[in-house]
């Protein structure tokens, strides 16, 4: 029997089947990955088409809406910062001390993500009717139906998602690295600030952007806790609701598009910022 020559490459039909499988993967990937962006694009295009671009800036003449836009932007920027201030230590504790006690904290931090915003608003109202809440309002500062309340309600919802991001950011920094810093003479605070937080800075940035966006778009907790008083506590998402409720669909859509445009611009700027440069 003639010995069979050694095969240097797989048979052609095998190569074809590998090629087909690889193409199928990319087609499936593009198909499924494209669904969600397509849905969002369809929604934006149909909304713009319905209201028309010329109507987009028409409500800008209304001083109440300009006030609402300013309040939304200012309060959400502040809420984002406050959320980050709380989310950073929370995320650190969740990442570095995965014990039973922190598992409870993990669940607790998830609640504002799961609960409807309306429930959070009501819970805030109820809290400020308790002894502690009344003491805060009488002796420290007033939150209910006030701008500070808008910031508080937005912060409560924004902190939850920022905490998840910060936890993941700290998870990506090996604990060993901070320990090495300690052997090099760093205090715990220095190791946290110069190593762990410095290396989690991409997450810090991402957490702020997400917290800001969540706060900017929040509606339920703010409306329930602070109401929608014109030139006082009305934010853009409440304006959309108010315009809808009086049947002014074009204005509601225009304000929604303001929100969308502003968020898009902020996110594009944020994504364009250099991430790798050391911040400290």
């Amino acid at each position: 029997m003639t010995p069979r020559p050694p095969e240097t490459s797989p048979p052609a039909n095998d190569q074809r089947s590998y090629g087909r499988a690889n193409h199928a993967f990319f087609i499936a990937l593009l198909g499924t990955a494209g669904i969600y962006p397509a849905v969002i694009t369809a929604l934006v295009v149909s909304t713009v088409g319905y209201s028309g671009l010329q109507q987009l800036w028409a409500p800008w003449g209304d001083p109440a809406l300009r006030y609402a836009a300013g309040l939304s932007l200012g309060s959400s920027l502040a809420s984002g910062l406050l959320a980050l201030t709380m989310a950073t230590p929370c995320g650190y504790v969740l990442s570095r001390f995965p014990r039973r006690g922190t598992r409870f904290l993990d669940v607790l931090v998830y609640l504002p993500i799961v609960l409807p915003g309306l429930v959070i608003g009501v819970a805030l109202l109820i809290f400020f009717q308790t002894g502690v809440g009344r003491f805060i309002e009488q002796h420290l500062m007033t939150f209910t139906f006030a701008i500070k309340g808008v910031i508080l309600a937005q912060t409560v919802v924004a902190t939850a998602s920022a905490t998840r991001i910060m936890k993941m950011a700290f998870d990506a920094v090996p604990m060993r690295r901070a320990q090495v810093a300690r052997t090099l003479g760093a205090t715990r605070w220095q190791a946290f600030w110069h190593v762990e937080l410095a290396e989690a800075r991409a997450g810090l940035f991402e957490a702020y952007v997400l917290a800001w966006a969540t706060a900017f778009g929040s509606f339920g907790p703010v409306v329930l806790f602070c109401g929608t008083t014109r030139f006082r506590t009305e934010i853009l998402s409440a304006s959309v609701f108010l315009e809808f409720s009086i049947g002014n669909l074009e204005r509601a859509l225009a304000v929604s598009l303001w929100m969308g445009t502003l968020t898009g611009v902020v996110l594009l700027i944020a994504r364009g910022l250099p991430r790798k440069r050391a911040l400290w």
Binding site: P174, R176, R177, V180, A181, T183, A198, E199, A278, L279
Partner: peptide, 11 residues
Amino acid sequence: YVPQDYELFLS
């Protein structure tokens, strides 16, 4: 201390 994976500070 020089750890196994060196753990250099990436920032």
